[in-house]
């Protein structure tokens, strides 16, 4: 497990993390395109502009650590190790998707890498994280749980309940608040009292670090420290990662409520550009970066192609995995 607080001395590791970020970016661009092309239905909440957070956090986790996510979960899933191929198939609703088409974008999960699920209900992941941590304690394991929540989500009761509970029982939970300052079309500052999420956590006695989420290095070093502390029994902690949502709330939101100058300013601070600039300054050639991008784009394009041509699930699959006792029977086509 790579635990490092000195990423700047490990350019090879930066390249590896940058590649993951590229993979997320390419996945999200492709998902948005597929939505606009009518191949993907429902809601696609893109993670574009926040890639450094998921990658920086998850690079410091073990495969068997747990993660709970929210509606904007593609980046979290890829960073935790879910396969983008299976995720793309899921978005397209095809056989071979992470849920064989049962879930779609907002319900991607990969339990094999501890990814306990995206979530369509804001802040419901918070309490699930507490429960996973209780299980870890009961089973005397040394895993930890990471819960991703948005800055809008912190105003739901379950978030506050989960903070309190996690601290009362000193559970191994890392709450990560991705503060992009917006919730759908609402500027969160206008609907959030007090000095914000970090103060809220601190009022429960939970240590909180506020960092520049678009700075991969800062995310990595903070996470390395905090994860080590939690694993050593510090109890819950919170990281507030400041960031910016570069696109609409979902793929079909033009975000007309936003001042275009704000977006323009944010483009200069976005994580891909900054990480790439660091690589260029630190001996990685432009050609190498271009090759990396081409490779990742190819990879994702391949998954889209595959998803377009993959078989649809049979209607009978809608009736599996509901429950054991009292399982529904597939009534067949000719009902």
């Amino acid at each position: 497990m790579p635990v490092s607080s000195n990423l700047a001395n490990e350019p090879a590791r930066v390249v590896e993390m940058f590649r993951k970020m590229l993979l997320i970016r390419a996945f999200e661009e492709a998902a948005g395109q597929a939505f606009h092309d009518g191949h993907v239905r429902g809601s696609v909440h893109q993670y574009i502009g926040e890639e450094s957070i998921a990658v920086g956090i998850c690079a410091n986790l073990r495969d068997d650590d747990f993660l709970t996510s929210n509606h904007r979960g593609h980046g979290h899933s890829i960073a935790k190790g879910a396969h983008p191929r299976a995720m793309m198939l899921e978005l397209f609703g095809r056989v071979g998707g992470t849920s064989n088409g049962k879930g779609g974008s907002m319900h991607i999960a990969d339990f094999s890498v501890g990814m306990l699920g995206a979530n369509g209900v804001i802040a419901d992941g918070c309490t699930i994280s507490v429960g996973a941590a209780q299980a870890i304690r009961l089973l005397k394991q040394d895993r930890i749980v990471v819960n991703f929540i948005g800055d809008g989500g912190i105003n739901r009761g379950p978030f506050m309940e989960a903070l309190n509970w996690a601290k009362v029982y000193e559970l191994p939970v890392l709450f990560v608040c991705e503060n992009n300052q917006i919730a759908a079309s609402t500027t969160t500052r206008l609907v959030t009292a007090g000095e914000g999420i970090a103060k809220r956590a601190e009022s429960f006695g939970i240590p909180a670090a506020t960092i520049d989420g678009n700075d991969l290095f800062e995310v990595d070093s903070t996470t390395a420290r905090v994860v080590a502390e939690i694993r050593n029994g510090s109890g819950p902690q919170l990281i507030q990662a400041m960031t910016y949502r570069l696109r609409g709330h979902f793929a079909h939101d033009p975000a007309a409520y936003r001042d275009p100058r704000e977006l323009e300013a944010a483009l200069g601070r976005e994580p891909m550009v900054r990480t790439e600039a660091w690589l260029l300054e630190n001996g990685v050639g432009a050609d190498e970066i271009a090759a990396l991008k081409a490779e990742v784009d190819d990879e994702i394009a391949g998954y889209v192609d595959e998803a377009l041509n993959a078989p649809w699930p049979d209607g009978s699959l809608a009736f599996t995995d509901v429950q054991d006792v009292g399982a529904p029977e597939y009534p067949g086509e000719g009902r």
């Binding site: 609703g93 049962k102 649809w312 699930p313 209607g315």
Partner: peptide
């Protein structure tokens, strides 16, 4: 509806 959650994919949703 049958006693199943509403699934995502078109043929599954149609089956509901």
């Amino acid at each position: 509806g049958e006693r199943i959650p509403i699934p995502f994919s078109i043929p599954l949703e149609e089956a509901y």
